[in-house]
Amino acid sequence: MSARLHRSRWSRGVERLFELGIRLGGFAAVVLLSGIMLFVVGEAWPFLLGRFDAIEFFTSTEWFPDSVVKVRYGALALFVGTLSVTALAMVAAVPVGLLGAIYLAELAPPRVREPGKIIIELLAAIPSVVWGFIALTVVSPLMVSVLDLPVGLNVANGALVLALMSLPVIISLGEDALRAVPDSYREAAEALGATRWETTTRVVVPAARNGLLAAVLLGVSRVVGETMAVLMATGHSVRIPHSIFDPVRTLTATIAAELGEAPKGGEHYRALFTIGLCLFVITFVINWLADRLIRRAAHRV
């Protein structure tokens, strides 16, 4: 073994290729991802410059994109639809999700925790279209018969399904946030004679505040962006709901319902991209806030 070893040209060539591949892959990934932004903005752009009227778009409830006599692009009812379904879903999911996270992370004995987490994963794995199916064929008839409503497809139905869909997000991220609180905090509190419950509510939860808030935000973002389930659960009515048993249509459902009919490159098509752009911006802001909260929490702990 006296002679110095030299790697063969072949192995160096393979290495060059490997590195080239990695660079290209990285580049392609970044290009594709920035492409999403670019395309959504680009396809919405002619509409934004042309027919788009901010006052009409944000304050009118008249959404008649393919009307022959008077075309209107008032998206207020769609925003309100998304808002109402999201708000109602969160009213149910936030307390239940956070309490569930607290229970699983802090109070539950291991023999409850493990099956609990499996159930949460199960819940998360059910595809959105299956939830829509459940809303349509189980929840809706139930609402009609129990609450004596004319139709079972409404804000409440959509919110119920969305709440169930956002629970796994809130619980698993909330649990992560609680677990990130160092054990020394709990030990210190318990050494001072605090009970488990007091330790949890007065020490651990306040310490995990940012992470819990981020979990809620990501739950909201999931709900705002959900499409198939709300498309199937909330009915199709572009109007401002007066009660939780009124049908509505959300931003996402509008795109899903109309994109197929809108002629490619036409005004309606571009109006739908504008709605997509709004969704993009809304979820981007929420996710960005959540990311900042998580990072800040990570820094502190």
Partner: peptide, 22 residues
């Protein structure tokens, strides 16, 4: 990285729009 974190949370219907457009 910020873009990746956020794009992971973009609604699937927006991806649908991108798919149609692109």
């Amino acid at each position: 990285h910020l873009a990746i974190v956020n794009l992971a949370g973009v609604p699937s219907i927006v991806h649908a729009l991108f798919g149609v457009g692109a």
